[in-house]
Nucleic acid binder design. Sequence first.
DNA 1: TTACATAGTGTTATATTATAACAATTTAAA
DNA 2: TTTAAATTGTTATAATATAACACTATGTAA
Lengths: 131, 131
Amino acid sequence: MHKEHTLTKNQQIIFDLIDKSPEPMKAYSILFNVQKKGIKAPLQVYRALDKLVEIGKIHKIESRNAFIACHNSSCQVAKATAFSICEICEKVTEISSAGLSKYLANFKDKDGMKYSKYNLEFFGLCKKCRT
Amino acid sequence: MHKEHTLTKNQQIIFDLIDKSPEPMKAYSILFNVQKKGIKAPLQVYRALDKLVEIGKIHKIESRNAFIACHNSSCQVAKATAFSICEICEKVTEISSAGLSKYLANFKDKDGMKYSKYNLEFFGLCKKCRT
DNA sequence: TTACATAGTGTTATATTATAACAATTTAAA
DNA sequence: TTTAAATTGTTATAATATAACACTATGTAA
Ligand SMILES: [Zn+2]
Ligand SMILES: [Zn+2]
Ligand SMILES: [Zn+2]
Ligand SMILES: [Zn+2]
């Protein structure tokens, strides 16, 4: 769905870094990690992040101000996202549940309004931290 | 549920301000508005906000870095919240849907894990902006 | 009441996250 | 090819949030 975009140099560098990261990355951590590749200023990072979010290659974890690569092939609508976040180790996992996305996409508020875009963040303990 | 807490002076001042506001308020806007009441530093605001969030009197709209008073009497679990956000006028409404909260509270991820805390933000157009 | 623990306050300084403004360059159409 | 749109590089600054420390109020229990 969002694979057709040709990324620019900065976008590719930043996407690769986030994609390889086992955890969500913060903007200034990204900046630090790409300085050796010639990206020197916060704005260069934020502009790439904005674009990557827009085309759905990455998502922003709003409660953490951090960015994670999309690993959800069923993530058709770039801005309909769901995550689980461990409150101890901060592990973040993108949830790909057809049932959940269907429920949320079909949810109607009091006025009968539907919303195709949403962001859902579940908080709890991951498998490892539960034991 | 969360009405029993006795607020301290700073907490009460800040809660009253947010509660009267027709829209979510940002921390430094709150600061500006309470300076005449003797609250002079960001930390005084953030500490009150933290406490008010913790006891469920207000919620943080994560995608907007703003705070709104809880007007959802069925908001039993302080940290299980849902909002609709208008992408044009930025109107924010707390959603109180028994069906939705039940669905989310009972949602199980791939590992069968349930989450009692969550934050859901729907994005779309409000009634006024739709016309 | 007195001691103690807990929570809240006031203050200064600083850290972290994000955008404004402007000039230059690249890219992709028309 | 020329023109518009997107991207880049750069400096400066705005907006959001926390660290550290000394002090004060409040509640609980001996
Ligand atoms: Zn995704
Ligand atoms: Zn964990
Ligand atoms: Zn509420
Ligand atoms: Zn609106």
